[in-house]
């Protein structure tokens, strides 16, 4: 693994009596694509929410290049260079396509404004392959285009780390292929990405490493091939009887 850029140490999140994330520890290397996988309800999305600052951890820490970020509010974490997409795509319905992207560029990690922001936003639209007019309302977009637009908004802040929360979910087979190749392009650009994903093909072809969660704890870590062959991982996914 390359030099660590994000480090999660002994992170725990409790909701009342429920422990959603339990003592998670892992690192993400620079230019690495890390898959965060596990069965439904294993705490992956909570983990993403903790990294992005949507939730505060109960204990433990997250550091970005050695600086602790887990006490910061979401906007500060974003400004330090962590940007995310949402499990259910979230766009800004009253803004048009280009404004949706500019929204990501103005206040985030690398701030742009005016003509510069607009040009950069157009670049990002091109990057994600969204070929619609900038002044089109977002309500006219197809599902994959909505996902592309959200990704463009996130990229517009030039994040050091990109969090993709089931970005490929809900796409049909052709769209899925497009989606995977888009993320592969981002990976080839040298971006650091953490992705929560259920689509196994995507995990195999995109991830350098995987962290597997079950009931809030880490049960395996390694290359996709390693973890997918791990007995405990199979047991977690398929249940005891099949192992």
């Amino acid at each position: 693994m390359a030099r660590s850029i994000l480090s999660v140490q002994n992170l725990t999140k409790k909701f009342g009596g429920l422990v959603a994330v339990n003592g998670m520890t892992f690192d993400v290397g620079e230019h690495e694509v890390l898959g965060l996988i596990g069965p439904n309800g294993s705490g992956k999305t909570t983990m993403m929410n903790l990294i992005s600052g949507a939730l505060k951890p109960t204990s433990g820490s997250i550091s970005l290049q050695g600086t602790r970020i887990s006490d910061l509010p979401a906007q500060e974490i974003n400004r330090k260079g962590v940007a995310r997409t949402f499990q259910l795509v979230r766009l800004l319905p009253s803004l048009n396509v280009i404004e949706n992207v500019i929204a990501g560029a103005v206040f985030g990690h690398r701030k742009r404004w005016g003509v510069e922001a607009e040009n950069y936003a157009r670049e990002m639209l091109e990057r994600v392959g969204l070929q619609v007019a900038g002044d089109a309302p977002v309500s006219t977009l197809t599902y994959i285009d909505q996902k592309r637009l959200e990704l463009a908004r996130v990229l517009a802040s030039d994040p050091k780390i990109l969090l993709l929360d089931e970005w490929l979910a809900g796409l049909n087979p052709t769209e899925l292929e497009t989606g995977i190749s888009l993320i592969r392009d981002l990976r080839n650009d040298g971006r650091t990405i953490i992705l929560v994903e259920h689509v196994m093909d995507a995990i195999r072809s995109l991830c350098d490493r995987c962290v597997v969660m079950n009931s809030g704890t880490k049960i395996a870590e390694g290359t996709p091939a390693e973890v997918l062959a791990d007995r405990e991982v199979i047991r977690a996914y398929l249940g005891d009887d099949d192992a």
Binding site: G53, A74, Q75, N78, R90, L92, G108, H109, K111, S157
Partner: peptide, 12 residues
Amino acid sequence: NDEVVAAHSGIN
């Protein structure tokens, strides 16, 4: 439009 998106776009 969306306060969560706003916060995650770096807006205080």
